[in-house]
Design a protein around this nucleic acid. Structure first.
Lengths: 297, 297
DNA sequence: CGTCATTACGGAATGCGTAATGATA
DNA sequence: TATCATTACGCATTCCGTAATGACG
């Protein structure tokens, strides 16, 4: 196989049309350059340069090879630049998990910021519940995840965004006339809740918020996912407490109202990753995700 | 810049996941392979392989570079094959001239045969009169041309196809009722002829054919190109003698009739080229063009 | 005969293989 | 401690530069 050095030599000679000038351009003397080309030709078993005259003229094969040689040199240079970008975290592949709910709000902001700031980083997305994300992060098949707390000590995590709870209720519900709904108003009301296993975080959150206020509603139904909960509300099964961003899911006949809770924004979304993950794109991705304009943008 | 050898080494190690086996595959021992990779990494200023354990694990940068390295090796191999095809005449660029009239018949046959037999040869076409084709062939800017004889001694040429002359005449012309028209029928008739300068070959041909038969028609008009001649015939200016393949130009209100000439097929088309042309694609192209199935296909 | 490419030759650098060392599971 | 990668060292090859030769205009 020929050498990249030989390609350089050939391209220089072809472009200068002169061994002497080509050698000068390559900071060397003519003889080794002459041998380089000879060796390249021997390797290819093809004559690239017509030496019948004293002038340098490419053969048809030489002209064809010149294009390929230029492209190869260019690609080699690009490969170098590209791999350096990967170590800088400015290129590469990052696998990112996210929960269904985070997809309505934070994920879009994060992806837009990444597309803008890290155009060479390809982000591979997987919608997964928090538990599965943590498993995969631990196993090393996921670089980062947008998850609900808590996270085990084995993985790092930081708060990305916290948001308020809102009440979702049918537009014709008596409470819908109010701008803001007190927790006490839910006492005895029909409430659509979350599955204690599959939606552990929201289950605990809602139970905690209502329990602290000593409000005991009637739990009429459980669902795994926020959009299912909203569908049940729309079907008239009751009221639900959902994160603020879920209000982006426009359901016909559904309204959202502020709920005053002890903690103003009790719904937390964290980004989680493994401390010893060596993907450089992870660092730049985390810097980006934890930047203020992404957290609140 | 890194070496193609280093790329080979890296790809082997990455694929085998083991320096020893990779070295075996490359028919060498581990130590130089190990150094090859180190040098590649030093050159790139990037760590490609995680050596923390005893196992070979690629870093994210390594995974990214593996793709590029494979592609570069593949492209280099392809470039070698490709340039060899050029010297075989099975690839490359061939510039071909043709006269407007040859475009109606032979050219299509030639191009179809070339596309079938020489798929890697790109044929660049130029429509030019014979005189300009000869000039460019002599100057070396045209590899071959489909021309009318005669050609000067400085260029080689071979007959590609000869064809009969036909009379083109308006559908309502008195002579149009005959299947075949005798030259003597043209005596005194209005005939649309060819320009003695710009269409020298056809001018000489028609004058020669008619003169030998001692037929003296009335030359009403000259034109450079066959399709112009036909347009004049259609306009009722007279009869014209045109090559057989020109009958492919379907003009409304125009019919073609056989003409009995001393030589059955007096219209010749030749392929011309310069003897010292070093484009290997020219040889294969000529072989193809002069093959029987192209000459008569 | 002057310019330009190729061949000739000597020294430096590179690269492989064998042997020794180091590190990990 | 056994396996696997890296470092150490000696030898062959490669590659560059200077000098000499050859060829075209």
């Amino acid at each position: 196989m020929f050498t990249i050095h030989q390609l350089r030599g050939f391209v220089a000679v072809a472009e200068e049309g002169h061994f002497g000038r080509a050698a000068q351009r390559l900071s060397m003397t003519q003889p080794p350059l002459s041998r380089q080309i000879q060796q390249l030709e021997k390797e290819l078993r093809v004559t690239l340069i017509d030496r019948s005259g004293r002038t340098v003229r490419l053969t048809p094969a030489g002209r064809a090879f010149l294009r390929d040689a230029r492209r190869l040199l260019n690609d080699a240079e690009n490969a170098t630049q590209s791999v350096r970008r990967v170590t800088d975290g400015r290129a590469g592949v990052l696998s990112l998990g996210f929960t269904a709910t985070s997809g309505y709000g934070v994920l879009g902001t994060v992806l837009r910021a990444a597309a803008r700031e890290l155009p060479h980083v390809e982000i591979v997305l997987s919608e997964l519940v928090t538990r599965d994300q943590i498993d995969r992060i631990t196993a090393g098949t996921l670089d980062a995840g947008l998850v609900r707390p808590p996270t085990p000590p084995a993985v790092e995590s930081r708060l990305v965004r916290s948001e308020a709870l809102m009440a979702a209720l049918p537009v014709d519900h008596p409470l819908a006339v109010q701008d803001e709904i007190a927790l006490s108003a839910l006492h005895g009301a029909d409430v659509v809740g979350y599955s204690p296993l599959e939606a552990r975080y929201f289950y605990d959150l809602v139970v905690g918020v209502l329990g602290a206020a000593d409000v005991r509603p009637t739990h009429v139904q459980h669902a795994h996912q926020v959009h299912t909960v909203l569908a049940l509300v729309e079907a008239g099964m009751g009221i639900a407490l959902v994160p603020e961003t879920a209000a982006r899911l426009r359901f016909e006949g559904l309204v959202f109202r502020r709920v005053r809770t002890p903690v103003a924004e009790p719904v937390e979304l964290h980004v989680a990753w493994r401390a010893d993950n060596d993907n450089p794109a992870l660092r730049t991705f985390l810097d980006l995700t934890l930047a203020e304009n992404v957290r609140y943008g």
